[in-house]
Every structure is written in structure tokens, then in C-alpha cells.
Computed example of a mutant assay.
Amino acid sequence: MKKLFFIFFIITAVFAQNLYFDAYKNIQKAKRIIKTDPQKADRYFIEAYSYLKQLVNTSIDNNKPSANAFNLLGNMYLKGWGVEKNERKAIELLCGAAQLGNKKAKRTLAKLNVKCDKINFKELKQ
């Protein structure tokens, strides 16, 4: 039973890591071409959003929330990258990332002058 759990854990971790890096790469590509090809950039952002949404929901379901995924998704909502700009949702996600120790999220929240309450991660499912 322990071996089966360990194998499941490894597969889940690899899957999550791939989703995160795929989303991160798409965001970087989109940021590079946003001025020259905004439609293509938007497609990259939408794909990244899809990956991050899946990763956030899976990580919450597995009781292992992903600080990096929360941070990236929060920034997407904050900047309106591939999603409708939504500062309230962005702050919730960034607060979740900060609660999990993400330093970038903490810096972003400090710039926004936002103090966070304790986050219930189940409420952050997308």
C-alpha cells in the first residue's frame, strides 16, 4: 500500500510540475509578443490560465496547494492576462500564495498595500 501511495504521489508531483512549467513558458512567450501579435499572445495566456486553473484545483483537492500556481494565476487576474481583470480574485490568490510562503506574492501584495486574512484554500477553487 505504501508503494502504491508513493508511486501516486510521484506521478502527481511530476504532472503538477509539468503543468506549472508549461503555464510559465506560455506566459513568457505571450509577454514577449504581446505588442507585435496580441491575438497570439492572448491564446498563450488563455492556455496558461487553463493549465494553472487545473493545477490549482488539483493541488487543493490533494491538500497540497501550489504557492507558485496561486502566484501566477493571481498575477494573471491582476493584469488581465487571458482572463477578465479581477483585482479581488487576484488578491485572494496572491494571499493564498503568500500564506504558503511565496515571496513574489508577498512583494506584490506589499506594493498593493494589502494585508491578508487567513485563506481557506477550498474557497479558491476555480
Rank of each mutant, 00 (worst) to 15 (best):
P38W: 01
G74D: 03
K40L: 14
K118E: 11
K2F: 08
F5W: 11
Q28G: 09
E92L: 12
L112T: 02
L100S: 05
L94V: 01
T58I: 13
F21Q: 11
I27T: 05
G80T: 06
S66H: 12
I33E: 09
I119K: 05
D37W: 03
A105C: 04
D42P: 00
K40E: 15
K2E: 14
D37P: 05
E47S: 14
D117E: 14
K79I: 08
V14E: 06
L73F: 04
A48V: 10
M76N: 09
T36H: 08
I34E: 15
N62Y: 11
G82P: 06
D117V: 04
F6I: 15
G82Q: 02
K125S: 06
I34L: 12
S59I: 09
K118P: 00
E47N: 14
P65N: 02
K79N: 15
A48P: 05
N102K: 02
K64A: 10
A41M: 02
E92K: 12
R107C: 00
K89V: 10
T108Q: 07
G96W: 00
F15S: 11
Y24P: 00
R43E: 15
K118Q: 10
A110R: 08
N63Q: 14
K104G: 03
C95Y: 02
Q28F: 10
Y24H: 06
R43Q: 15
N71H: 11
K35T: 12
Y77E: 04
N75F: 00
G82A: 02
R107I: 07
F45C: 09
S50D: 13
L52M: 08
I10R: 13
F70N: 03
V83Q: 01
L4T: 13
G82F: 00
G82W: 01
F6H: 12
F121W: 06
Y49V: 14
L94T: 01
D22S: 10
L112E: 03
D42V: 07
K79W: 07
L112Q: 04
K104A: 06
K40V: 12
I91P: 08
C95E: 02
Q54E: 14
A67L: 07
Q39W: 04
M76A: 09
I7D: 07
N62K: 14
P38C: 05
K111L: 13
L124I: 09
A69G: 05
E123D: 15
K122G: 06
A16P: 05
P38Q: 03
N26A: 06
K79A: 09
N71P: 03
A110K: 12
F6N: 14
A30W: 02
E84G: 07
R32V: 11
I7G: 03
S66K: 08
E123C: 04
K89T: 12
R43M: 13
C116R: 03
L109M: 00
Q17G: 05
I33P: 05
I10P: 07
A90P: 07
I27L: 13
A30N: 01
N18T: 11
M76L: 15
I33H: 04
L19M: 12
N71T: 09
K115D: 10
A16G: 12
Y49L: 09
I46N: 09
Q28T: 13
D61T: 10
F9L: 14
I119N: 04
K31L: 15
K2M: 10
R107A: 12
Y24S: 05
Y44D: 08
L72Y: 05
G82E: 00
Y51L: 07
I91G: 02
